[in-house]
Simulated scan of single mutants.
Amino acid sequence: MTKSIFSDRYQHFRKLLVNARNKAGLSQTQLAEKINKRQTFISKYEIGERRIDVVELIEIAEALNIDPCEIIVELKKVKA
Rank of each mutant, 00 (worst) to 15 (best):
Lys34Met: 03
Val18Pro: 00
Pro68Asp: 03
Gln39Gly: 03
Tyr45Ala: 01
Arg14Phe: 08
Thr2Ser: 12
Ile47Lys: 13
Gly25Trp: 11
Lys76Ala: 11
Glu62Pro: 00
Glu70Asn: 15
Arg14Met: 14
Ala20Val: 02
Ile52Lys: 04
Gln39His: 10
Ser27Phe: 10
Leu75Phe: 05
Gln39Val: 01
Val78Met: 06
Lys23Phe: 05
Ala32Phe: 04
Glu59Tyr: 08
Phe6Glu: 15
Gly48Tyr: 12
Ile47Ala: 01
Ile52Thr: 07
Thr40Ala: 12
Asn19Thr: 13
Asp67Gln: 12
Arg51Leu: 13
Lys15Ser: 15
Lys44Gly: 00
Leu26Trp: 08
Ala24Met: 08
Lys37Glu: 14
Ile42Ser: 01
Lys44Glu: 15
Leu64Arg: 03
Val78His: 07
Lys3His: 14
Ala32Tyr: 08
Ser27Ala: 09
Lys34Trp: 01
Leu75Gly: 04
Ile60Leu: 09
Arg38Ala: 13
Phe13Met: 05
Tyr45Lys: 04
Asn36Asp: 14
Glu59Arg: 11
Lys76Trp: 01
Gln30Leu: 10
Phe6Thr: 12
Phe6Met: 09
Ser43Phe: 10
Arg9His: 08
Gln11Val: 10
Ala80Arg: 14
Ile66Val: 14
Leu17Asn: 07
Gln28Asp: 02
Val18Ser: 09
Ala24Glu: 05
Glu70Lys: 14
Lys34Arg: 15
Gln28Tyr: 06
Met1Lys: 11
Lys44Tyr: 09
Glu49Asp: 14
Asp8Arg: 15
Ala61His: 05
Leu64Met: 07
Ser7Asn: 11
Ile42Ala: 03
Val73Phe: 13
Ser7Phe: 09
Leu31Glu: 01
Leu26Gly: 02
Val73Leu: 14
Ser4Gln: 12
Phe6Leu: 13
Arg9Thr: 14
Arg50Val: 10
Asn65Asp: 15
Phe41Trp: 11
Ile71Tyr: 05
Val78Asp: 06
Glu62Ser: 11
Lys15Cys: 05
Cys69Asp: 14
Glu70Cys: 04
Ile5Ala: 06
Arg21Ser: 07
Ala32Met: 06
Lys23Cys: 00
Pro68Arg: 04
Lys37His: 10
Lys34Glu: 05
Glu59Lys: 13
Ile47Tyr: 11
Met1Ile: 09
Ile72Tyr: 13
Glu33Pro: 00
Glu33Arg: 05
Leu31Gly: 01
Lys37Thr: 01
Tyr45Val: 07
Ala32Ile: 03
His12Ile: 01
Thr2Gln: 14
Gln30Glu: 15
Lys15Trp: 02
Glu33Ile: 00
Phe41Tyr: 15
Ala24Val: 01
Arg14Gln: 15
Ile60Arg: 06
Ser43Cys: 06
Asp8Tyr: 07
Arg50Gly: 04
Arg9Ala: 11
Phe13Trp: 04
Gln30Asp: 12
Leu57Pro: 02
Ala24Leu: 04
Leu17Glu: 06
Ile72Lys: 07
Ser7Ile: 02
Glu59Ser: 14
Glu70Leu: 13
Asn36Lys: 13
Glu49Pro: 00
Ser43Tyr: 11
Val78Asn: 06
Gln39Tyr: 05
Lys77Glu: 13
Ile35Tyr: 05
Ile58Leu: 10
